[in-house]
Design a protein around this nucleic acid. Structure first.
Lengths: 234, 234
DNA sequence: TAAAATATTCGTTTATAGACGAAAAATAAA
DNA sequence: TTTATTTTTCGTCTATAAACGAATATTTTA
């Protein structure tokens, strides 16, 4: 989850739940050091519209409006201020050492659809866990993660949902990740190996015992990341 | 920030920014294992209303609607399901060892107002930093935090905003916190000492050099926490 | 201090949200 | 398989959001 998405989500959540949403919009506009006029111009609105929102004249702005305002704040900062504020926040987001990408999907994605979209081949047998759905994914650098991980860090792989796909990169035989999955009380919905050297039959056996589909995909990592993210954007 | 607020904010943010907000509402309703009918009854609405939202008939639901839906999901889980889902998420929120409470204010609060509301006495001189505003607070267990902290953990005290009040508890002379503040590149807007034993004059000097008001308050800790939280609720 | 820039207020119009309820369809339970 | 429950669809009405623009007020800048 990159800083833009994380910050957008934080702002959206805060505005929506605020006892005074207008003032929250104003707070964040001030954080970005953007005038009402500039924000209005960017959104191709009249400045009085922004003033009406911030003053609370609109008691229940629609979420598409909130989304547009936040998008504008971020875009102005990024495109016209060199990302000055975004950069300040970047240092606040923990970069979790072994997590290459993590995302919560805004809606459930059936496992079959998921596997198809990432050009995955299922190693486990046909009936294993394919009726479930996925609510997010984590791309894991196996070398960094599996070999050095403790239980607190492992739990972070699950983000906000355990109903997710764990995508392991840097796999040679694929035993260690499946052992880690088997030992931990919380189970992912799907395990994906990205371009493994080979897959030991033990890994497949462990996956089947857990009723977790074990999937292999060989598309390039950047493309895989894009496809994973795009699944939540349709 | 307790789990209810954190989860509410996460859900609100996700719904607002989702390409298909209706489906996101549905995802979370399913996460909580609540039927449309139960949700509708709880909100004293017709079930067809929930169906219309989830199907996307309403393209831009108002934030007060989103807020009510999320509030209902959480309340049903808490009051009728024993907090089953909330408890699942509790283990996901890192309890930061030395942080007793942390919150982002949904709007800027002038420093003067802030100090007054917590029954604070300013130790630094009149002109120091009182024209600024506060966008959040962190209540810190000094004994745990200051004496064992490293720079990564210290940065976490600032949450999403550096324009905040750091409230240190368990103070004897008050030198260590001010030294930490002075040494770190990022500065809080206000430093509050809760029921210090005494305050060394060095601490006051350091605060004045940083142009940070140093404030003392002696109200009970639970009451202080309540007042701090209430400041964001008016 | 004057001028420029920014922000506010509020009347108004159009589009859409918020909500209901009836009928039909889908799903779950017995 | 039947029955009960849940969900969906959609027409409809009322309230409010979304947006404009004019006039005024406030703040910032030179």
């Amino acid at each position: 989850m990159n800083i833009k998405n994380a910050l957008s989500e934080k702002i959206a959540g805060e505005i929506t739940l605020s006892p005074k949403p207008g003032q929250t919009i104003r707070k964040w506009r001030n954080v970005f050091d953007i005038s009402q006029t500039e924000l209005a111009n960017h959104l191709m609105l009249s400045p009085s519209v922004i003033s009406d929102y911030e003053s609370g004249r609109r008691k229940s702005p629609g979420i598409q409006t909130i989304k547009k305002v936040i998008g504008a704040l971020i875009e102005i900062d990024e495109k016209k201020r060199g990302g000055k504020i975004l950069r300040q926040y970047s240092s606040m987001i923990e970069t979790r050492e072994g997590i290459l990408e993590i995302m919560e999907y805004p809606f459930s994605i059936p496992v079959g659809t998921f596997i198809k979209k990432i050009s995955g081949n299922v190693l486990t047998s046909k009936d294993i866990g394919l009726k479930k759905s996925v609510k997010g994914f984590t791309v894991v650098d196996s070398i960094k993660t599996i070999e050095t991980i403790n239980s607190v860090d492992y739990a972070k792989l699950y983000g906000w949902s355990t109903e997710r796909a764990l995508v392991f990169t840097g796999i040679r035989y694929g035993r260690s990740p499946m052992i880690a999955v088997r030992v931990h009380p919380v189970k992912p919905t799907v395990v994906v190996y990205h371009k493994p050297g080979s897959v030991d039959s033990l890994a497949i056996k462990l996956a089947e015992r857990e009723n977790i589909p074990l999937v292999v995909t060989n598309i390039p990592l950047d493309e895989l990341k894009k496809k994973l993210i795009l699944l939540g954007a349709q």
